[in-house]
Each structure stands twice: as C-alpha cells, then as structure tokens.
Amino acid sequence: MKIHLLYAAVAALTCVAGCSEDEKEVIDTEYPVIAVDAADAFPKQCSTLKRGQSFTFRASLSDNVRLGSVSVDVHHNFDHHTHSTEVIECNMEPVKRPVNPFLLIKSFPIPEGLQQYQTAFELAVPADVDPGDYHFLIRLTDQEGWQTVKGLSIKIE
C-alpha cells in the first residue's frame, strides 16, 4: 500500500516536471542596446562640454521587446577612478581635488511600449563648475529589468 502511494507521488512529480514544459512561455533574455555611433549622437567618447552652455543628449536606444527607462549620470573623474566602456582611451588631465564638480543624475522616462527611442534631452552645464575630466554614464533598462551601461569619458572646458 505504501509502495503504491509512493509510485503515485513519483508519477505526480514526473507529470509536474513534464507538464511544465508545455506551458513554457517565451522569455526575453536580451539586453537593450545604447548606440552613440550615429553622426548626430552626443556626447561621444572624448567629447567636450562647455561650461555655462546647454547641450542635447542624443543617443539611439533600442530593445527587442520594450524599453524601460534611461538614466544619465555625469560625475567627475578628477581622481581617474574609472575608465570607460569604450575601446578608445581619451587624454586625461593630471589628478586633482574636486572643489565644485559638476554632478548630474537624471532619469528619463521612455514612453510605454517602445522598441526604439531617440533621446533629445536638453541638459545645461552651470558656469561655475570645475573644468576637467568627467564621466558620462548612460544606463538603459528594458521592461524586464535587463540593463546595459555605457560609460563615456568626456571633458568639461
């Protein structure tokens, strides 16, 4: 009797294992893509921003299903603490101490349900910030939570 119970349990288990394969859904495992290679994309690796002026952040974002959100983080690299994700290295100024470094953290919503999105966000660089080496970090997610990061080395003059 006990043995029969066991067989039933094992059979149930095998069924659960087997049945699950049928209801398998298509799962998105692809990362979104940030492209800054178009002619009008800005900034690019080693671009320069001017103090007291505005610029337009232009990048081409895409995902195989749905884009999530994009975040921009501009922070100083006076201590040379990190490098970019790009192959080309830029010329760096000597290490220095920050006094009033430019800091910008901004998240931009992407309209719902898009697979492609062209950013055109107007960003201003205040006139009184420290010039020097900076990082321009772009983080892009899709709706599933996959994230791609692009780290660009830029300068502020």
């Binding site: 994009v70 998240s107 997610t141």
Partner: peptide, 27 residues
C-alpha cells in the same frame, strides 16, 4: 526584482532592485 527604474538620488542613477513576492514552483 530588478525593475526598469533608476534611482535619482542616492543610487546615482543605478538600476532599482525591489523586493517582491511571487508564486514559485521548484522541482
């Protein structure tokens, strides 16, 4: 759960991961 959101403040633009609960089957 890794969300599509980014944190604007302290997270310095990092992706937001949020605790959530869901039904889970394991075998």
């Amino acid at each position: 759960n890794p969300t599509a959101e980014h944190d604007y403040y302290y997270g310095a633009g990092n992706q937001v991961f949020e605790y959530a609960q869901s039904r889970v089957r394991r075998y």
